[in-house]
Simulated scan of single mutants.
Amino acid sequence: MFFLKKKKESEDKKTFDHELKKTRESFFSKIKNLFLRKSKIEINVIDQMEDILLSADIGIPTTIKIIDNLEKRIQKEKYRDTQDLYNLLKKEIENLFINIKNECLEKKIKSHKKPYVIMMVGVNGVGKTTTIGKLAFLLKKKGFHSIIGASDTFRAAAIDQLEIWANKAKVPLIKQHMYADPASVAYDTLQSAKSKEKDVVLIDTAGRLQNRIGLMEELSKISRVMKKIIPESPHEIMLVLDASTGQNAFEQVKKFTFFVKISSIVLTKIEGTAKGGVAIGIMDQFKIPIQYLGTGEKIQDLKEFDGKKFINCFFEE
């Protein structure tokens, strides 16, 4: 039994490393090469390390914080060996995750009276509709009964696309015609969820961020209407971001957190980019937990985010 457990852990690690291959190779190889070339800590090593952190799209504020902490530790504790600095860098990045509460979605669903209502938000093109299908499939595998509401009624083919994913996940979909009132769809979805005793409701929303005032009013209206059915809903507002956009993802978080309280984040398309370091910067700067990583095009390609595993992937051979 112990052997089988260890074997599965090893296989999971290999899979995870492969899914983060581009970020891992870009970041790890640069860090590794930097430390291989030097045995003693020199002033320019810190500068080069700063460039590597920035190139991984960790972001300027978080990079400055890491570098400042490293310089203070070097002065105070008199590190001279680059291996010590390498380990210290990893520790400093790990410290960014320590105080960020990242409760498992499964536990949150179980601790609430059903149905647990999740509003999915994000700009067009980040993979929001795909993520809803994947999340519905994942929750079904864990034994939860979900229902999806197609409240993005303004984008061409959005309802059809969501229906395809709902069928793949074998989860019911509540929909109306294009240009229907999004709040009305959400209302119908929650009514159906209550009558059919569903565990989870997933509400898709429009992603027209260029019209911020209109989007804010729309999301507020959806929330108000849902509260008529379930007063404390939505229990969760999940923001979907595309990892490959790098620094642009930071701007999207800023804009959405300006008018809605984001509970958690899904970072998509992580397998195809070298900009995975954006996860570190976002969690540090906004203190919002990353709940899932989108790691591919298949319905099963949605993985629970594990901060420790994520950081280890950056640093281990």
Rank of each mutant, 00 (worst) to 15 (best):
M1W: 06
S233Y: 02
V121L: 15
I43P: 14
P115W: 05
I132W: 05
F27T: 00
I74R: 12
M49E: 11
R212N: 14
W165V: 03
E77C: 13
K275C: 01
F28P: 00
I213E: 15
E251M: 07
F250D: 02
L241M: 06
E25T: 09
K32L: 11
K78E: 14
G296K: 05
K38W: 11
T273K: 01
I60K: 07
N95H: 13
K261M: 13
K101R: 14
V45M: 14
N248Y: 00
E304R: 03
F258M: 14
F137V: 02
K175W: 11
S146P: 15
V121F: 14
K303W: 01
D284V: 04
L70P: 01
A183N: 03
P234T: 01
E11W: 10
V45K: 05
A180R: 06
L70E: 09
F16Q: 03
N312P: 14
Q247A: 08
I66N: 00
K227S: 12
I147Y: 06
Y79P: 01
G122R: 02
K91R: 15
I64Y: 10
C313D: 15
I288D: 05
I46L: 15
S195P: 07
T189N: 08
M119T: 10
A180H: 01
D68G: 04
D199F: 07
R155Q: 07
C104R: 06
A150Y: 03
G307C: 09
V240G: 00
K308Q: 10
E271D: 15
S146Y: 13
P172I: 07
L293R: 00
E71G: 02
E297S: 10
V240R: 00
I265M: 11
K40C: 07
A279K: 04
V260D: 08
A274H: 04
K30P: 01
L138G: 02
S195C: 11
V200N: 00
E9R: 15
I262S: 14
N211T: 14
S146V: 12
S151M: 04
E317L: 10
T82G: 04
S39G: 09
L70Q: 05
L135C: 06
K254P: 04
D17W: 10
G122W: 02
T189L: 11
I290W: 04
K6I: 12
A180T: 05
K65L: 12
H235R: 09
I164W: 03
R37C: 07
L302N: 00
G294H: 02
K13H: 05
S244V: 03
